[in-house]
Nucleic acid binder design. Sequence first.
DNA 1: TGTATATAATACTTATAGGTATCATTTATG
DNA 2: CATAAATGATACCTATAAGTATTATATACA
Lengths: 143, 143
Amino acid sequence: MNFSKTTDYAFRIMRLMSQDELKLFTVEEIYQQIRIPYRYLRKLMTHLTRSDFMESVQGKKGGFRLSRPSSQITLLDILKVVDPEYLTGRCFFGFENCALDTVCIMHDQWTGVRANVHAILANTSLADLHVSGDLNEHFKQPK
Amino acid sequence: MNFSKTTDYAFRIMRLMSQDELKLFTVEEIYQQIRIPYRYLRKLMTHLTRSDFMESVQGKKGGFRLSRPSSQITLLDILKVVDPEYLTGRCFFGFENCALDTVCIMHDQWTGVRANVHAILANTSLADLHVSGDLNEHFKQPK
DNA sequence: TGTATATAATACTTATAGGTATCATTTATG
DNA sequence: CATAAATGATACCTATAAGTATTATATACA
């Protein structure tokens, strides 16, 4: 149900970077904002570079930046890079033949849940995550 | 999104046992029907006994049986025993303070998904899994 | 052109879920 | 009461996600 730690990390990194979508971020800067274990963060950043939404600049004055506007990067794009198996259509009971020739009794309900999650992720861009403009723009007020 | 292997195993075991809800099953019998690794199955069976819906009888002629009617055992009951963390209300981004004083922008949508999953699991009893009476009673016909 | 500062690559370590092996305990029955 | 047939407990092994360490490479600029 919950995402992997790495997926949470990736969402938080991307959300931060989308606050200033043209800026070149160093790992150090990101680390200051999001306290992900430093060396793991570095590895994750280079991993995210193997996507079509993040690019890196090497050498002194180098860093990472988004390769397209944050409105054109969805949470689904990110998930696909860090945990491509997450939405894989496994049978509710793990039956091998469920989706093939017969369909288990939970199939439709479970497919519905998965479609719902898929839609939420596909329809939420990084730009959608901060609609107001304040410092804690990803937060709404307490209930 | 998907359940752990162990959860899938548990669902399949319980579904099988609910086909004959008074019968005492040996591990060997269950193994013949569901090809879960034998020794792991044994460990899982004794683990399931630490619930209020499964009991064991030791010694020769021993085995496992349900401790109440299958209509009174839900998938949620089973999940709580094998993966109690699955539905834990973690923040979408993994923010520590999300649910406490402020609420992240994905909070409501994610809570909705979780509530949906919770409802499906809580409203599906083992009896619901086989409404028809044939051998493959957990299967519907091909689409 | 040397050095400082950045990312890239790779290998190693740790924590945990899944899986295996062995021995102990319980109980029906000849 | 000995034995066979079942579960119970415990320790160990393995695969993978998470995290750490080290070395290589690229580049700005004094």
